[in-house]
Each structure stands twice: as structure tokens, then as C-alpha cells.
Amino acid sequence: MSAEITINQFANLENGTRLHFASAGEKGRPLMLFVHGFPEFWYEWKVQLAEFGQDYFAVAPDLRGFNLSDMPTDVSAYKARHIVDDLRLLIAHLGYEKAVVVAHDWGGAICWNMAIALPALFEKLIIVNSPHPYLFMQALKHDPGQKSSSEYMNWLRNPGSEQALAKDEFTLMDGFFNGMGQEDAGWFDAETRAAYHACWARGLTGGVNYYRASPLHPPTEANSGPLQLKLDPADFQVKVTTRIIWGENDKALPKTLLDGIENFVDDVQIQRIPEGSHWVIHEQPDRVNRLIRQFMQQ
């Protein structure tokens, strides 16, 4: 039996940001927070909300810049620390001190940062296809294959990329779901496509600004990106119980990004899905749900 999903809820946060969120389950149960990536929105987690709303208060926000949440115009408003602050304040707004956090892609990048800076906010962290920031920085600096597979990030950082993404009824955007490890995204059916197009039609600049605001991108002649950063690995330690689900057929974020993760996370387990792509949440939602359940029962 699935829990009913409630949408069109808004949180006015203390920092002035207004976030839209969807939820399932009863408030007062343990909070499970689902954090989407690019180019998605709360809808990425609809199967998970219906499942975990049965015994959690399951909440999936639209991050700032996406769908029905506020879309600041300043690129600097999309630095990771501001998104972390949104999530911190959302947890408090919902009446909680901590949450189980499940995050994918850009949501994972934000939540790695949040786990490093604010571990007390977490019961557990579950990451799906999102690299630890220090390991990703090292790969961008030293791994030619990673530099090549991440070149799309530099394209997205360019002025006007959002106009190119919107051209011809979001043809390029639709292609993201067919070009990152799988040939035919069967899950991206007409209903799902319509939902995503409605989201994208509300604006793409906010989502693209995550890339523009981040120092992590492949180096170019004009911008050395992560090569400029002198970071101490000790500053990137995660003290939160962490479980990772990784679709190994991810063309942008290969499985080699997991190498060395045990040096940064005290308590980590990895579940690899060899045939899963970057979009494994959509491709195998029931399997992902089972794995999350197993992690929660440990």
C-alpha cells in the first residue's frame, strides 16, 4: 500500500528563501528528506515518497532555482553553502532537529557538504551517484577521462546555455535522459516528459547556475577551476553513517569516483548496480527502495 503524496506546499525559511515541497506520510514520524539533482525536481522521488511515506514523514523539496521554489538571479546565490542553509532551515521549519537524507546528483553534492559541515543534522546519509567533493576534485585535476566526461559542465557554465537547453521543446534536455549510460530511457514516458517540461518551462537559469557557482569543473585555459584550490583532505571527513548506491553505467560519473571513499567516511557501505545508469533511481525504483530499506534496518 502506497502513501498519498501531497504537493503545492511551501516553506518560508528564515533566510528569506521560499521552497516548494511535496510530502507523504504523517508529520511527527521520523523525517526522511529526498534531495534531487539537475535537471530534476521533487518529482524525481515520487516512487520513494509513496513508499517511505508509509512509515516516515517523507519530504522532497524543489531546491532553490528549480520548479516552484524561489529562483534568485545572482549566480553567487547558488553556492553550496546557501543550498546547505536552505536544507538546514527546511528541517527546522518542518519541526525536526535531524533527518535521514537521501540525495542524488547535485543534491548529493550539496548533502556531502552538509554532512561534512553539519553532521548533527543527519540520522543517516544515502547517496545515489554523486561523488564525494574531494575525490571529484582530484579526478578533475588528475584523471583525463574524468575531465573529458565532465566537459558538459563547462558547456553549461557558458552564457546562454539555458536558451540552448530550452530550444526545440527541450530536445537537449530530453537527451540527458538518453545519453548518460542508457540507450532508451523507457521510464521517460509521455506523462513523465510532460511533468519535466512543465518544470523546465518555469526556468532553467537557476539549475544551470549551480554549475556556474561551483569551483568544481574541468579546467580550461581561461579558468583552471579546481587546480586553483589547495584543500586539506582532513577538512572533508564525513562522520555520518553513509550508504552509497551507484549505477556503474554512469557515463558522466564513473565508478572510479568511489575509489578511496573509505578514507573520507568513517562508516560507509556501497551497493553497486552494474547495469544502472546515472538515472538508476528511475530505472530501478523498487530496487533502490529495497536498498534504502536495508540500509535503514542496519
Rank of each mutant, 00 (worst) to 15 (best):
A3N: 12
T6V: 13
I7R: 12
A11R: 07
A11M: 10
A11Q: 15
N12W: 08
N12I: 05
L13V: 12
L13G: 11
N15D: 09
G16H: 01
R18E: 08
L19H: 08
A22E: 02
A22M: 00
S23A: 14
G25D: 01
K27A: 14
G28H: 10
L33Y: 06
F34S: 00
F34W: 08
F34N: 01
V35N: 02
F38K: 02
F38M: 12
P39L: 04
W42I: 02
Y43A: 00
E44T: 13
E51Y: 12
G53E: 01
F57Q: 00
V59P: 00
V59Q: 02
P61N: 08
L63H: 01
N67D: 12
S69W: 09
D70M: 05
P72K: 05
P72T: 08
P72N: 05
V75S: 08
A77H: 07
Y78S: 06
K79G: 14
L90K: 04
L94E: 02
Y96R: 12
Y96E: 06
E97A: 15
V101G: 10
A103E: 03
D105Y: 10
D105C: 09
G107I: 10
C111I: 05
A115I: 00
L121R: 03
L121D: 04
F122N: 01
E123G: 09
K124G: 02
I127K: 02
I127D: 00
V128L: 13
V128N: 03
H132Y: 02
P133R: 01
P133E: 02
Y134Q: 05
L135E: 01
F136L: 10
S149Q: 06
M153K: 14
N154D: 07
L156D: 03
L156R: 12
L156P: 03
N158W: 02
E162V: 09
K167G: 10
E169V: 10
L172I: 14
L172M: 15
D174M: 12
G175R: 12
N178D: 15
N178S: 14
G179Y: 07
Q182F: 06
E183V: 14
E183G: 15
E183H: 11
D184S: 15
A185N: 13
G186S: 12
A190I: 07
E191K: 15
C199Q: 10
A201M: 09
A201G: 15
L204T: 05
L204H: 06
L204I: 07
V208M: 04
Y210L: 05
Y210G: 00
A213N: 03
L216V: 06
H217R: 08
P218G: 01
P219W: 00
T220D: 08
E221P: 04
E221K: 14
A222Q: 15
N223F: 06
S224D: 13
G225T: 02
D232H: 15
D235G: 13
D235F: 13
V238Y: 01
R243G: 14
R243W: 14
I244Y: 07
I245M: 14
I245T: 06
W246C: 09
N249L: 06
D250V: 12
L253G: 00
L253M: 11
G260R: 09
G260N: 13
I261P: 04
V265E: 01
I270C: 09
I270D: 06
I270E: 08
R272W: 05
I273E: 04
I273Q: 04
P274S: 06
S277G: 08
P285G: 12
D286P: 04
D286A: 13
L291H: 13
I292E: 03
F295Q: 03
Q298P: 05
